[in-house]
């Protein structure tokens, strides 16, 4: 059935779908985007105490972030189950897992909002010092990606009600959404290790004058 309705798209030299190839190239490009942001953070990570104290060790909360990391990993599991459901054209399962993914993604964003406001209360804003600048920019851009992902997934969920054919007839629509979502997850895996665990380990909170 899919072959019949999507005949023009199937005629490619490699036999691969245009949009899926586009998404993977886009993710390759995104690697350099986040790579540059992480490099900025790494270069400047020890320069927080130069101005207004509040270095990573003073504010980063490992237990809370471990919890939010757990939530994001779970959302990835939910997403892959949604992709599998769409492969089977199982509309009911698809809706359940899409909703779960978006729900868990929203909880992750909730954690991030909580974390950001806690930092601001402690006196660390994007303009306080270099750590504040790199931290809020890096995790903020990740948060924007998560937000876009949640909106995308909710849009697919809505589509599954009024244009069933788009999500069951062509599993690629969910597949590509999934690729984006998992990418956001692996970026967080790197950020959690590099910024949080390695970034704080062995450092004591020393507030400069």
């Amino acid at each position: 059935m899919a072959a019949a309705t999507h005949e023009p798209e199937h005629h490619t030299s490699t036999g691969l779908n245009h949009r899926k190839l586009l998404m993977w190239t886009f993710l390759g490009s995104e690697c350099l985007f986040f790579g540059s942001l992480i490099a900025t953070h790494m270069i400047n990570r020890n320069k927080a105490e130069l101005l207004h104290g509040l270095s990573p060790a003073c504010v980063l909360d490992i237990p809370i972030t471990s919890a939010s990391t757990f939530v994001l990993l779970m959302s990835s599991v939910a997403m892959v189950l949604a992709v599998a459901a769409s492969e089977r054209s199982d509309l009911k399962q698809l809706r359940i897992w899409l909703f779960s993914t978006a729900f868990l993604g929203t909880i992750f964003l909730g954690f991030q909002v909580y974390e950001f406001s806690a930092f601001v209360n402690e006196g660390l804003t994007i303009g306080t010092n270099l750590f504040g600048s790199t931290f809020f920019t890096l995790t903020g851009f990740h948060g924007v990606h998560v937000t876009v992902g949640v909106i995308w997934i909710l849009s697919m969920l809505a589509t599954s009600f009024f244009r069933k054919d788009l999500v069951t007839g062509d599993p690629l629509n969910i597949d590509i959404t999934g690729l984006y979502w998992h990418f956001v997850d692996i970026v967080w895996i790197v950020i959690f290790t590099v910024v949080y665990l390695v970034g704080v380990f062995g450092l004591n909170c020393v507030e400069a004058a």
């Binding site: 400047n44 303009g127 600048s133 790199t134 920019t137």
Partner: peptide
């Protein structure tokens, strides 16, 4: 922000 701020 302070990315290129030598003072920071």
């Amino acid at each position: 922000t302070a990315f290129f701020d030598t003072g920071a």
